[in-house]
């Protein structure tokens, strides 16, 4: 599926919920299902700066596509990453770089989280796109 189709799918999932509390619970459930990251990737160099919580991001390229794996000590952050991974992991590098990620605003995520958390989310997205830029230039 394309980035846009995946974003649309997430937006439709969140339309089931009226209240922020329900959306939060859903993000937590997604976070709890995120496959754990192998400890060998939990290195300082994989840590994302600008996050209040510890977040590790591991990226790799396979068959011309970019893949992401991640972990955090916060289940909510894991939920956020899981949404980003759903949309971006397994896509061509150029698609990752250009992904609009408008779903974050559409589902009301950014408007409900504290500024420090929103900055952390932006840092995660920036880091994922930077990996993709790096891989794109190698291809």
């Amino acid at each position: 599926m394309s980035v846009l189709d995946l974003e649309k799918e997430i937006i439709e999932d969140f339309e089931l919920f009226d209240e922020w509390e329900e959306k939060y619970q859903y993000i937590i459930e997604i976070g709890q299902k995120l496959p754990p990251l192998d400890d060998k990737y939990k290195l300082d160099e994989n840590k994302i700066k600008g996050c209040q919580s510890s977040v590790w991001l591991h990226a790799y390229a396979k068959d011309g596509l970019v893949y992401f794996e991640a972990d955090s000590d916060s289940t909510f952050v894991k939920g956020e990453i899981a949404l980003l991974i759903k949309v971006l992991s397994g896509q061509p590098a150029a698609e990752v770089v250009n992904a609009p990620l408008a779903f974050i605003d559409t589902i009301g995520l950014r408007q409900h989280i504290a500024v420090t958390r929103a900055n952390g989310l932006s840092s995660m997205i920036k880091q994922m796109k930077l990996y993709a830029v790096g891989m794109n230039s190698k291809q």
Binding site: E19, W20, E21, Q25, S53, D73, S74, T75, F76, A114
Partner: peptide, 20 residues
């Protein structure tokens, strides 16, 4: 339970606490 996750969940219920 991560304190910030709990604080944020309480916030969704309208309850303002401090975490950290």
């Amino acid at each position: 339970v991560n304190a910030m996750d709990a604080g944020m969940y309480l916030d969704t219920m309208g309850i303002a606490v401090r975490t950290g």
